[in-house]
Structures are given as C-alpha cells and as structure tokens.
Computed example of a mutant assay.
Amino acid sequence: MVAIDYMAHQEQYSPSELLEYAGLAEEAGYDFVWTSDHFHPWFHTNAEAGFAWSWLGAASQQIDLPIGTYVTPAAEHYHPGMIAQAFATIGEMHDDRVVLGLSTGEAMNEKPLDHEWPEYDVRRDRLEETIEIALELFERDDFVSYDGEHFGLDDAHLYTKPETRPEVHVAANGPSTARLAARYADGFMTVITGEEFTERLYPAVRRYAREEGRDPDEIETTVLVIVSYNEDYEQAYEATRPWWATTQDVFDQAIADPREIEALGEQATREEVEEKFLIADDPSEIAAEIERLEEMGFDRIALANTSPEPEQLFEVMGTDVIPSL
C-alpha cells in the first residue's frame, strides 16, 4: 500500500500550529511528517516562515512518526557540514526515521541573505557537493576533508551521530537533477505528476539507477500534493489561493520577494488551479486521487493541508480516506 504522509508547510501556519497538526496527522493514521525549509515563504499575505530545523527538533520529541524536510536547499546559506550536523542531531534525538530531503533550492532562500542566485548548472553542482559531503560525514568515523568547487571540509568530524544515519532523498523536477537521486540518494521527491512524470521523469530515474548499478526499486519515490477539503467546493477552491504562484513556474525564477511571488499567483486561471491542486468536497475524491498517484509509481504521497478548516481534512482522512485505502 502507498504511504500517506503529512506535509507541514512552514509558510502557511505558525510552528506551534504545525506541531498540533502533526499530532492530528499521527492520530489520523498518516505515515510520515515532512516540513518545508525556506527563508522566505511562497506568498506574503498571512504568511509564516518558521525555521525547519528548530521545528524538527521539537517534532522529534512530540510525535513518533518518521520526520524529514521537503526540502532543504543545497545553497550558499547552508554549509553542507552544518546540514549534516543538524540532521545527525535530529536523528540522535528521534526514535524513528529521519530524512534529509535536498534540492537545488530557490532564490527566496538566497537573495534575502545577500547571496547570489546562480544559473542551474551551478546550483546542480552545489547540490551534488552537498550530498557527497553529507554522506561522507554521516558514514565515516574518521576526519573528513573535501575540496570542492563550491564547498570544502578541512579535517571535519561529526562527534554526535545517530545509530542509523539520516536518509538522503533528492528532489527533482527534471531528469538532470534526477540523475543525482539515482546516483546517491535513498529516495526521489517531486511535485511532478501526470504524463510528464510517467513518460519522462520516472523512467529517467529508473534508467539512471540501473546505469549506476543500483536496483531502481530501492529508491523510494515521493510526490507532494497540496489538498484543500471542504463540503463547500468554492470555499475549498478559494483556500488554495496562497499557493497559486506555484502554478506559474516560479521555482527556477530569480524572485525572492513574497509580495512579487503572490502577485504572480494572481495570474493563475481556474483551470490551472484545479489541475495543480487536489480540491475536494467529498472524501472519496481524495481517495481516488491517491489511488491514481499510486498507479503512477509513487511509494509515498505527501499531502499538504490548505483547507479552510484544516482539522476537517485530518478528520476525514482518519475516518474515511485512509481506512478505505
């Protein structure tokens, strides 16, 4: 059976609210809790921007589900050694799986902190170096040196480690970054669905894995889906508004100001919104979409909750959707 996860978006709710919602997800039968890792949010109005690493430390003490980031940017504002130290610490504190999700990142993590936002090939290279450094520090018991083009280590050693190293999953929306998942990672993460996933991205990951001498089935595949549920469909539709900019191909644009990102989202058409998000007034529609995504090849489905009354979605997931699956 496909795993049903909760995506705790730091952009939409305060850290305290997200801890409450993570508890509701656990009670409803969800399998995993992910959280986002950004400096600026994807929108400005009523936005939040809690720090993922602090939140994961708190979550490790309050819930018994696996936890991880969806996703931590491999960029200048985080040195890979600090990323490895943070997730090793979380892993030592938690009794279940800890996953370090990594991506090439977005401009809103870098530009506000006065870092440059380079071209994709530079961002991809930084991601690869971050993965290599993190895995070296997680897996080696001696001191580690690393001389990369973007990052380095000089006899670095992690003194605090969990018994089982954090898993590393790589997020990708295109084949080039997907190759890194196939080469290094325990899992592959995306927001891409439909034919673009089944015809292009998923086959690429599996082909690259075989080229690397790996069994493709050993690479866990996760998709992020933003869900809005309400018995009044129009209310559910309107509640997706904070995320409308994600329909406008903003991930690779050099936009860092949430006010600009939000304004770009207002260009979204109703067709784009309904195609991008899972908007439902009947729990059976949620179950049907989960089954459709499972058939595409996803092992895990991370559901973000942007419902007008978020507690209602957790309730119907626990009483209607998850039992039906």
Score class of each variant (00 low, 15 high):
181 A>I: 00
26 E>Q: 14
175 P>K: 06
311 E>F: 05
168 V>D: 07
49 A>P: 12
25 A>C: 06
90 I>H: 07
214 R>G: 06
58 A>H: 10
150 H>C: 05
238 E>H: 08
287 A>I: 02
175 P>D: 10
274 E>P: 07
242 P>L: 08
92 E>L: 13
246 T>N: 09
170 V>E: 10
98 V>H: 02
117 W>T: 04
205 V>C: 09
278 L>G: 02
314 F>H: 03
282 D>K: 04
149 E>H: 09
75 A>S: 15
233 Y>T: 11
184 Y>K: 04
107 A>E: 00
235 Q>R: 14
203 P>H: 07
319 T>C: 04
294 E>T: 01
36 S>L: 13
270 R>M: 06
130 T>N: 09
158 L>A: 07
235 Q>M: 06
182 A>Y: 05
208 Y>W: 11
281 D>V: 01
290 I>V: 14
75 A>I: 02
76 E>P: 11
139 E>H: 13
44 H>A: 09
296 M>H: 14
279 I>Y: 05
159 Y>D: 13
60 S>Y: 02
235 Q>E: 15
207 R>W: 07
63 I>L: 06
300 R>G: 00
227 V>Q: 00
225 V>P: 01
189 M>R: 04
303 L>M: 14
324 S>Q: 11
72 T>L: 14
279 I>V: 11
15 P>W: 11
315 E>R: 13
168 V>N: 04
116 E>R: 12
100 L>Y: 09
259 R>M: 03
120 Y>D: 05
294 E>P: 00
312 Q>I: 03
114 D>Y: 12
83 I>L: 15
205 V>P: 10
117 W>A: 05
45 T>P: 06
126 R>P: 03
285 E>D: 15
106 E>Y: 08
151 F>A: 09
242 P>E: 05
262 E>N: 08
76 E>G: 12
310 P>F: 11
250 V>P: 12
102 L>Q: 00
214 R>N: 07
31 D>F: 11
227 V>Y: 07
30 Y>D: 02
294 E>I: 00
231 E>P: 00
111 K>E: 14
260 E>L: 12
65 L>A: 03
37 D>Q: 04
284 S>N: 14
292 R>W: 10
319 T>N: 15
224 L>F: 14
51 F>P: 00
212 E>P: 09
